[in-house]
Amino acid sequence: MKQSNKQLTKLLAAAFVTLIYIFLYLPIAIIVFFSFNSSKLNIVFQGFTLQWYGIMLQNTDLMSALENTAIVAVATVVISVFIGTLAAIGMFRYEFRGKSIVDSFLYIPIVIPEIVMGISLLAFYHILNISLGITTLIIAHVTFSMPYVVVTVRSRIAGYDMSVEEAAMDLGATRLHTLLRITLPIIAPGILAGAMLALTLSLDDVIVSFFTTGVDSMTLPIYIFNKVKTGVSPDINALVTVIILITLLILVFMRTFEAKTSKKGQVG
């Protein structure tokens, strides 16, 4: 009796989890599904086609939105990881006056509603007479992702024993050598985690981008946002499908990288 009860609970749990995952993937699956539909309307599946994948390449607005998204994401990752990692190491290594203030300051962009950050940057750019474009977009993205990078990198390096640095130097390694051969390999997984987070945040942002983008620097989500009201053609579905494939590839790559580094015993 008790055994069958346990089995039933397990079955119910599995069914429940499956349902949730269906819920999470349904909207994505439907977009992918209709990217192969020969009808221009995303309503009934009329027949299989790959034509939208060709049409999407000729849609210059769509392609430039894609390009902008990529430029902003890469720039955001580079800037926020560089500044954020420096700060994370600094805050991990040093005790200094006002550290706790810097700490709570870092949480402001994390905690305030995105819409408030968006409009405050919009107003700020406006009063400084900075016209909206790709630069204002990058600044905005760095602003909301950098604190996450600091927090992530710091928590990842918190567990490491940095005395190996001293050991290296005691044994005669130069400072540069120590940095390149000891410090960086130790904190690399933390930096990678921070970079991934910055990339995710930049790619997923809608609200802050909405307020800080110019007409010529629209990112993909903003482009789609403007299109949805007038009707979206399936070439957008096709592009989204391609993006999903690329992110899957990146994730698989990341997984293998993580597996490799953890084998070397560098992931704590």
């Binding site: 994505i28 995710t200 993909l220 989500p221 789609i224 989204v240 992110t247």
Partner: peptide, 8 residues
């Protein structure tokens, strides 16, 4: 799913 933009 996070990797696909929330607007999409």
């Amino acid at each position: 799913p996070f990797w696909t933009n929330s607007l999409i």
